[in-house]
Simulated scan of single mutants.
Amino acid sequence: MSSLPSLTRLHRPLVWFAASMGALALISAVGILVDDRILVGVPIWTKPFKFSVSFVAYALSLAWMLSLLPRGRRVGWWAGTVVVVASAAEMVLITLQVIRGKQSHFNHATPFDDAVFQIMGATVVILWLGALVIAALLLRARILDRAMAWAVRLSSLIALAGAAVGFLMVRPTPEQLADDNAPISGAHAVGVPDGGPSMPLTGWASNGGDLRIAHFFGMHALQLLPLLLIVLAALAPRFARLADERVRLRLTLTAAAAYAATFVLLTWQALRGQALLAPDGVTLAGAGAIALLGAAATALSLRGARGASPSPSPTPASPSAPTPAPHPSQEFTP
Rank of each mutant, 00 (worst) to 15 (best):
S3A: 15
S3C: 15
L4M: 02
L7A: 11
R9P: 07
R12T: 11
A18I: 02
S20Q: 10
G22F: 05
A23S: 13
G31M: 15
D35M: 01
L39F: 01
W45R: 08
K50P: 15
K50Y: 14
Y58S: 03
S61D: 02
A63W: 00
M65R: 03
V85F: 04
A89R: 07
L93M: 02
Q97A: 09
Q97I: 06
Q97H: 10
V98M: 03
H105N: 06
A109F: 04
T110Q: 03
Q118A: 15
A135F: 02
A136E: 07
A136T: 12
L137F: 03
R140G: 11
I143M: 15
A149P: 13
A151I: 01
S156P: 08
A159K: 05
G162H: 07
A164M: 05
P172C: 04
E175V: 15
L177C: 01
G186R: 07
A189Q: 00
G191W: 01
P193V: 08
D194T: 14
P197I: 00
G209A: 09
D210E: 09
L225Q: 02
L227A: 12
L235K: 05
R241Q: 13
E245Q: 08
R246W: 12
V247P: 07
L253W: 00
A260P: 09
A261K: 00
T262E: 14
L266Y: 01
L271E: 07
A275H: 09
V282Y: 15
A289H: 13
L293D: 02
G294Q: 05
A295T: 13
L300R: 10
G304A: 08
S311Y: 15
T315Q: 12
S320I: 10
H327V: 15
S329P: 12
F332W: 11
P334C: 14
